[in-house]
Design a protein around this nucleic acid. Structure first.
Lengths: 256, 256
DNA sequence: CAGTGGTCTAGACCACGTG
DNA sequence: ACGTGGTCTAGACCACTGC
């Protein structure tokens, strides 16, 4: 705040939300950065302006910008690379691919993966799906089913629900052609960046259809993983129900 | 560094490990703090010295101490409370109790929990246990089995393995008397603070004994959770194999 | 009111990546 | 050589807690 002899963070020109109880400057800067990300001012994989530049733009010190970026980096929305700049996180890039997939081979060797699209439909949202995605039951959703194999062994059966409006051009053909993580496709083809997800996990006996597709005995124990993925602004954009075969794989998790 | 006109972080008096490639000052401070925690200089629940005090002790600026503490707080080893001080994390305290338990009721209402000790034995470590706990197979371990119930419904069957040396006085009687999380007991009775854990999760059919104890049909699908817990310095101190009934509960997880 | 952590600034220098 | 993020410092003031 160059024009302000006291360092009062609330006195400067109106930077973000105007009134509000009290929010530290760096939080306000963080919100502004989030808005820019959401607005698509900087695309996934691209670099954002340098800290000095942002400091000038927002009329704050570099340290304040830094703290805002620190938090966004901690949340994996941004990626700092010393000497190069700060980049918008992306689901392309080998390093963060399958960022949301916690299923891991017991022996540690990463397997060859293959995907088979079983079905793509556009339907009115079932109530539970509508509730999870914050939509009305009259809204249209895309329902996508696929089978993932690792080292040729069928391992994950996914049942995926997406808001129809945001995923207009999504067809079985475009999916069949595509190689790589779905989230990368969502990002580059539909401008939807998944930033965070919540999962609910339980054990479930395989039904007849799942057993057949996953090539296990009916009633075999499967891991059922229900995931809701969110974009910027905590807007839910995907509901995914997966059934995992955990014979030679396990779901890994770290607790702090 | 008051006595050093240049801000060279490597030139001052030898603060931590001496040589080593290069480590930022605040990382060295962090190591020193970790050593103090490990050594028990400050006990769980207690406050550590103030930032100014630590800055004076280590001959660095408050900002550097702050950054070290920031990281320890992010890892949940320390807890900052504005206006009061910085405290050593503890498994007592309602807020962080069951910090490592991710099983959550589907309806959100937190249940009444009860614990029943089934068995406590001291045996030579089986090979897999020895490997997980970084021990020799000739070493003695404590093996503890218990049944957790939520709202009177048997839900978790735990099979727990602990290094015998560190848990000398652990008996069935002392456990039966104790109420509250095991990790809190480990902390106050044995000076072992669990700081971090890794879990491997899979779906498993209930064997006859588990089915009987958990009051489910044999071959019912159960969540099998294998957890290794670590103290300071990444030393594994517990192997825990749990079987969870996920009829009215689920394992929740957040992905970033 | 004093003491604690929390925010903000300004400026110096370091490590890294690229030309 | 230059620009980027990373570290470190010193000092000011704010917000919260408890005496």
């Amino acid at each position: 705040m160059s024009d302000n002899s006291s360092n009062d963070p609330a006195s400067g020109p109106d930077r973000a939300g105007s009134s509000a109880a009290y929010s530290p400057l760096y939080q306000q800067i963080k919100s502004l950065l989030l808005q820019s990300l959401d607005r698509g001012e900087w695309k996934p994989g691209e670099s954002i302006p340098s800290e000095v530049e942002l400091a000038a733009r927002f009329q704050v010190s570099q340290g304040t910008v830094r703290k805002a970026i620190d938090e966004l980096a901690a949340e994996n929305l941004l990626l700092r690379r010393q000497g190069k700049g700060t980049f918008v996180a992306t689901h392309h890039e080998a390093k963060v691919r399958f960022r949301f997939l916690r299923l891991t081979p017991d022996d540690g060797k990463q397997p060859v993966s293959g995907s088979q699209i079983l079905d793509v439909r556009r339907v009115k949202a079932p109530v539970d799906v509508a509730r999870a995605l914050d939509m009305r039951a009259s809204d249209v959703v895309v329902n996508l089913r696929r089978l993932l194999s690792f080292d040729q062994v069928p391992t994950i059966l996914d049942d995926i629900w997406l808001p129809g409006a945001a995923f207009k051009g999504l067809t079985a053909e475009s999916l069949a052609r595509y190689r790589g993580p779905l989230y990368a496709l969502f990002e580059s083809e539909f401008g939807v960046s998944m930033v965070r997800a919540e999962e609910k996990i339980r054990a479930k006996a395989a039904g007849p259809e799942a057993a057949q597709l996953l090539q296990v005995e009916p009633n075999s124990p499967l891991l059922q993983v229900e995931r809701v993925s969110y974009t910027y602004g905590d807007r839910p954009m995907e509901l995914r129900r997966g059934l995992y075969v955990t014979e030679r794989f396990h779901y890994r998790n770290n607790l702090n």
